[in-house]
Design a protein around this nucleic acid. Structure first.
Length: 388
DNA sequence: TAGGCCATCTGGTCCT
DNA sequence: AGGACCAGATGGCCTA
């Protein structure tokens, strides 16, 4: 029987994976702790039996008390510990100590209770009544409080991580396999918000290069590569300098941007995926210009006057500016900053709540994109391109 | 093997 | 008093 300990790096006994803590993991952890307790008890019972047996073999029969009263308290000599326990102690003294203490306490408590149940200090039969308070009670209490505080802290950090995970899902380049680190997630989210705000406040087709540069500002090179890979860019064209500034070192920006197979846009030589960074996964290619035109230049499907109701959830990613991502849109009404930014953008095409927005009438952009209240099937496909 | 990332523990501080 | 929040310390895992 093999037990994998929870602390300090929890491992799920069922699938052998370390965190992250989730519902499944937590339930596993509870079961695991039960198993640990049972296991420790089993070990001690085994040790007890072994030593009793050993004593039976080595001790003269005239010392039968050793058989019925083996002591495993704190003063029990370590050299008499079973090998497995001694090994464990050497491997991790702190943990083993606490575990040992716990197990020892269990057993010594039991033994003590058994003894106390018979006689009092004077050897007279023990009277019934409230138990004497032990001197260590106050310390036990603070210990318990510390444990509770630890548990709360864990829960707090877990909820923080949950929030971070949901943030990962709404920034570009979400990947279950290659997760952005916490700090990179926050940086990317900040950049993303900033870039989108700039785009919206400008109210015109954004400078793609500037957008990507803003997106990658301050990110590490691997994350920059990842973002570039997600956006189907040649990651090597975007170099992060020592200050975290993203520099373009390739050809003209639009050459390095998207090309949709069969489009009349120039396809950069060797852009068939071979020049992508190794971290870049095969993504769908989108027509940059085709994607933008309907949003900025065409009249709204309803032919209404340009207005904006301020309820639109923020765009999902650069070419997904036309995809509305959030299943559970945040309450943007609370954010005056966003509301102002959204409303202040001039010349924007109206997007009514129930309208369906077809990005490319020619079908060059292969997805129908819907506003929030409608089907998200196509949106899922689009997002899938980024969230491999 | 060093460095990055992460989970956890822990003590301090602030607030209710 | 107790809970929330924070930051430092610690140790494990992973990767270049």
């Amino acid at each position: 029987m093999q037990i994998l300990y929870c602390y300090p790096s929890p491992v799920c006994v069922f699938d052998g994976k370390r965190g992250p803590p989730g519902a499944h993991y937590r339930s596993c952890q509870m079961i695991e702790k039960k198993l640990q307790r049972r296991f420790r008890r089993a070990i001690w019972e085994h040790a007890r039996c072994t030593l009793i047996r050993g004593n039976m073999l080595t001790l003269p029969f005239e010392e039968p008390h050793m058989m019925c009263e083996p002591r495993f308290g704190a003063n029990y000599p370590r050299e008499n510990l079973p090998e497995s326990l001694e090994k464990e102690r050497q491997h991790d003294p702190d943990r083993s100590n606490s575990d040992m203490r716990e197990a020892e306490d269990d057993i010594s408590d039991r033994d003590e209770d058994e003894r106390e149940g018979d006689h009092d200090d004077n050897g007279l039969p023990k009277k019934r009544g409230p138990r004497k308070k032990r001197p260590g009670k106050e310390m036990d209490r603070s210990k318990v409080r510390r444990h509770e505080a630890n548990a709360r802290e864990r829960t707090r950090m877990h909820s923080l991580n949950d929030a971070l995970e949901s943030l990962r899902k709404v920034v570009p380049c979400y990947s279950k396999t290659q997760k952005l680190s916490k700090i990179e997630t926050l940086r990317l989210a900040k950049n993303y918000i900033w870039a989108l705000s700039e785009t919206l406040s400008a109210g015109k087709r954004p400078d793609l290069l500037a957008f990507v540069q803003t997106l990658c500002k301050g990110l590490s090179q691997p994350t920059t590569n990842l973002v570039a890979g997600c956006l189907q860019l040649n990651a090597r064209n975007f170099l992060t300098d020592h200050n975290g500034e993203v520099m373009f070192s390739g050809r003209s920006p639009y050459d390095a941007m998207y090309s949709y197979p069969g489009s009349d846009m120039n396809t950069p030589p060797g852009h068939s995926g071979s020049n992508l960074d190794s971290s870049a996964k095969p993504f769908r290619h989108y027509s940059y210009s085709g994607a933008y035109e309907p949003y900025y230049e065409n009249p709204s499907p309803e032919g209404g006057s340009p207005h904006f109701d301020g309820q639109l959830s923020p765009p999902m990613n650069f070419n997904g500016i036309f995809s509305l991502k959030h299943d559970e849109p945040p309450d943007y009404g609370k954010s005056s900053h966003y509301g102002m930014r959204y409303c202040s953008a001039p010349g924007r095409t109206a997007l009514a709540h129930n309208s369906m927005y077809r990005v490319s009438p020619e079908g060059r952009f292969p997805y129908d994109l819907h506003v929030r209240s409608q089907s998200f099937q196509a949106q899922g496909e689009v997002n899938g391109s980024f969230h491999n």
